[in-house]
Design a protein around this nucleic acid. Structure first.
Lengths: 211, 211
DNA sequence: ATATTTTTTAACCAGATGGTTAAACCGTGC
DNA sequence: GCACGGTTTAACCATCTGGTTAAAAAATAT
């Protein structure tokens, strides 16, 4: 077997990149194998040669989308940091990572809502257990009375996720309501990167004056 | 013309209800005309008899989904109320309305992300202009220095929308992370209904001590 | 009762879609 | 040169999909 893949992307890679793009934009149901083939400039048969079926190809894309986005973020949640720092870092990290792949949140959530069975299990196995330490830490803080309004962990965590994730999902709404183009949206995200980490901490944890 | 429709729903209504259900769950691309027909227990030809095409049927469903959900909420945004009250009422109203139709946010956002062209225009025409007064009011408050951290209006409004809308979109994630079933999710929403209105106001506007 | 209009059914259709196959192509080692 | 492995192509296939049609059945009017 002769290996050594040089710079130029192989057919397999071209397919994968095209598939990623199409699946991200159209979702599983809306994606067409022919469109992926066209975009990769290869014969449709190659799709099945390298990835046996649409499902299999989708699975690869989905896994990598999750894996490319989440490890950095999630590894952070397992570190031994005080909650306040962890929240701040999480917000910062999430925004930074997703800024480079802004389609990922819509993609993941669309599929999770539209066709849960195909991906639920993978999500459960790969994400859920890694987030658990963070949930535990919030639970402790909650029991110790350190959370604003004494909210339970689910509420705290959903609030954080909402502020961090939603803007990417709601981008089209944002663009309609405020007449902003893609580059203005980037500025919008940069702005969030500046204020949101502290903002979320302040919103979540009791301040000194509350004690 | 003899009218008086009794309890039993007409074919047209049965189709519409079935279509609503299927489109909400699967999205436009994932929905099948045959599935809608089966669910409505009528012949597939009836779909085309009453609504000429899949697109037309979808449009009706989409319009009604938006219209059923939004008028109450949006009319509130045009009232002559102090910003603080308006935010409080908006949060309350949104949660109450969507609680009864929890699939609507995912549905609207999925289509807005997946196939913008089909609905963007309608959304722009029906929603954007009605929200404008609220945006203006926030802008004024922002200029008057009444907004926490002196955030610009886009940031303020997206933050509010995030906290209100995201939990419904992220329901599957929530269910995986916290192992909760549908009824526990309802409790979760009820809990939000209790604390979120005040919470959002406090997060958005400067408190007396900040002045 | 009969004519007319509306609603429903079943059979059908053209095009799209995911997938298969068999042959051609190409690089490498002999 | 030739054989051999992996790679690529074009033609093809079965099924699904949205949509049509013509005739039957029901309802309505005369």
């Amino acid at each position: 077997m002769t290996e050594i893949e040089p710079e130029e992307s192989s057919t397999e890679e071209k397919i994968f990149e095209a598939a990623k793009d199409v699946f991200h934009r159209k979702g599983f149901d809306g994606a067409r194998m022919q469109e992926i083939a066209d975009k990769a400039k290869i014969n449709k048969s190659m799709l099945h040669y390298y990835y046996r079926s649409k499902d299999k190809l989708f699975e690869k894309v989905y896994q990598l989308s999750l894996m490319r986005a989440l490890p950095q973020i999630v590894s952070l949640l397992n570190k031994d940091l005080p909650l306040e720092e962890k929240i701040r870092e999480f917000v910062r990290e999430y925004l930074s990572v997703i800024k480079k792949n802004p389609e990922i949140p819509s993609f993941i959530i669309r599929e999770l809502n539209t066709n849960p069975s195909r991906i639920q299990e993978f999500f459960r196995a790969q994400v859920a257990k890694r987030v658990q330490p963070f949930i535990d830490q919030v639970s402790e803080a909650s029991e110790a009375g350190k959370i604003k309004d004494d909210l339970p962990p689910e509420q705290v965590i959903i609030n954080i996720m909402s502020l961090v994730i939603f803007p990417f999902i709601g981008k089209p709404i944002l663009q309609i309501l405020f007449n902003i183009d893609d580059s203005a949206f980037d500025d919008f995200v940069d702005q969030r990167l500046e204020y949101l980490p502290d903002f979320v901490v302040e919103m979540t944890l009791k301040s000194d004056s509350d004690l």
